[in-house]
């Protein structure tokens, strides 16, 4: 496998996996959490470079710990939680930059690669790690869809139905951290969240249900990944940023095309809109 194939494959894995996890964050109206976890993961990268261990491994560990901390803050529902998250996120990114500075052979190029992605440096080992971690995330997000849907749609109801809500929440938090690490190489820690959220936003312009949104968003993620990758080669621009911009272009296109497609569907169904409903005073 050559350089470009490895890079493309890495971007495609990211495009497939990130929205499948991101849809649950969007459903909870916590679209920005992925970004925060990305910030925290940078501390892991810094630790890895400083101690000359695998930065990816350390990133997974630190992002997971950070993600669990975020989940604990969220589930407590404290009003001060917002502040706690801000401190955690900025502490994470500063810690990362600080530790990279202490590391031997420090270079800003290295830091930039983790922050904004550098798919062309993907090694065969990186790719194997990405594929394995990506498969684990997909197994959870697709396999546990009804349960994860239930806790994200109505957490109190899920509690009263006896679902293992705390366990599922933690699992979702850990998977978010793993997804961030998977996407780190392809789009970078600062842009990870975009691929979790933007394809979902694009998909829900067309879809009617949760399962449909999930499928479409994964297709959109792969499409934006491939499109952005080739565009970035052609224009010699940063791959991560180009992929994200492609996804946003897709979103804008769907916003414009959505009403047209919906109208056509309604006409073909033979029913023009909602039946009128009489609202009587009780």
């Amino acid at each position: 496998m050559d350089l470009f194939e490895r890079a493309l494959l890495g971007v495609l894995i990211t495009g497939l996996v990130a929205p499948s996890l991101g849809i649950y964050l969007v459903q909870r109206r916590m679209s920005l959490i992925g970004d925060g976890i990305g910030h925290i993961a940078l501390t892991g990268v810094g630790l890895g470079l400083l101690t000359s261990t695998q930065p990816v491994l350390m990133a997974v560990i630190v992002a997971t710990l950070g993600s669990i901390a975020v989940e604990l803050v969220r589930s407590r529902g404290r009003t001060s939680g917002d502040m706690a998250l801000a401190i955690l996120f900025y502490g994470g990114i500063s810690g990362g930059v600080f530790l990279v500075g202490l590391a031997p052979g420090k270079s800003n190029a290295n830091l930039m690669a983790y922050l904004f992605g550098s798919p062309l440096t993907t090694t065969e080992d990186d790719l194997i790690v990405m594929a394995v971690l990506g498969a684990i995330v997909l197994l959870v997000t697709l396999g546990l869809r009804p349960w994860l849907f239930a806790i994200c749609q109505d957490e109190e109801y899920a509690k009263v139905s006896g679902l293992p809500v705390r366990l599922l929440n933690l699992l979702l938090a850990v998977m978010a951290a793993v997804t961030v690490t998977v996407a780190m190489r392809a789009v970078g820690l600062l842009l990870v969240s975009a691929l979790m959220v933007v394809p979902v936003a694009a998909a829900q312009q067309l879809s009617r249900g949760f399962a449909g949104t999930m499928l479409l968003s994964m297709l959109g993620g792969v499409g934006a990944g491939a499109g952005g990758f080739f565009l970035s080669l052609r224009l010699d621009t940063g791959t991560g940023a180009t992929v994200v911009l492609t996804a946003i272009a897709l979103f804008v296109l769907m916003v414009l095309a959505g009403p047209l497609l919906r109208r056509r569907k309604r006409v073909s169904n033979g029913s023009a809109g909602e039946p009128p409903e009489w609202v009587l005073e009780g």
């Binding site: 849809i23 969007v26 459903q27 909870r28 109206r29 679209s31 009804p146 849907f149 239930a150 994200c152 749609q153 109505d154 957490e155 109190e156 109801y157 899920a158 139905s161 979902v200 829900q204 879809s207 009617r208 249900g209 949760f210 399962a211 949104t213």
Partner: peptide
Amino acid sequence: GAGSGVPATVREVVAAG
């Protein structure tokens, strides 16, 4: 529930029960 940032069909919501 407040968390409904993503569309869900009647059947999907009822199936959660």
